[in-house]
C-alpha cells in the first residue's frame, strides 16, 4: 500500500514516500499527490521507505517527474534503496529523466 507525507520548507517540498510504488498507487499519484505539489518550486521525492516497484509504478513516477519538469520545476529523487536503484538503472531512468535527477 502506498502512502506519503509532505514536508514544506519555503519553496521546497519533500515527499516522503512509503510502501510500494506499483499499479495500485496510480490513483494516489495522479489524483492526490500531483495537485499537492502544484505550489512548490523544488520537489524532492524521498524513496527511503520504498522497497518495491513495478513497471506501472515506474511509469507513474516518470510521468509525475516529467510533468513537473515541463512546468520548469526542480525535481530530485533521493535516498533510493539500492535494490530499487538497480531497477531504475536497468530501465535507464537517468536517461529518461536527466542524469542529475538522483541524489
Amino acid at each position: 500500500m502506498f502512502s506519503y507525507r509532505l514536508e514544506l520548507t519555503g519553496e521546497e517540498i519533500v515527499v516522503y514516500c512509503e510502501g510500494d510504488i506499483d499499479i495500485d498507487a496510480g490513483d494516489t499519484f495522479e489524483e492526490e499527490l500531483e495537485p499537492e505539489l502544484a505550489k512548490a518550486a523544488v520537489v524532492i521525492l524521498n524513496l527511503e521507505s520504498v522497497q518495491f516497484v513495478d513497471s506501472s509504478g515506474i511509469g507513474l513516477l516518470i510521468k509525475l517527474v516529467q510533468n513537473l519538469q515541463e512546468q520548469e520545476r526542480q525535481v530530485w529523487i533521493e535516498k533510493t534503496q539500492p535494490e530499487v536503484m538497480e531497477v531504475f538503472e536497468l530501465l535507464q531512468l537517468d536517461e529518461i529523466l536527466g542524469k542529475s535527477i538522483f541524489r
Binding site: 506499483d22 513495478d54 509504478g57 515506474i58 516518470i62 538497480e86 530501465l91 531512468l93 536517461e95
Partner: peptide
C-alpha cells in the same frame, strides 16, 4: 531484480514496462 514486482503483468502484460523502455 529483487525490488521489481511482477504483479501488474497479470493485468496489463508487458505494456507498462514497454512504455518505460520505449522512453529509454
Amino acid at each position: 531484480a529483487s525490488a521489481f514486482k511482477l504483479n501488474d503483468m497479470n493485468q496489463t502484460g508487458l505494456a507498462p514496462l514497454f512504455q518505460v523502455l520505449f522512453q529509454g
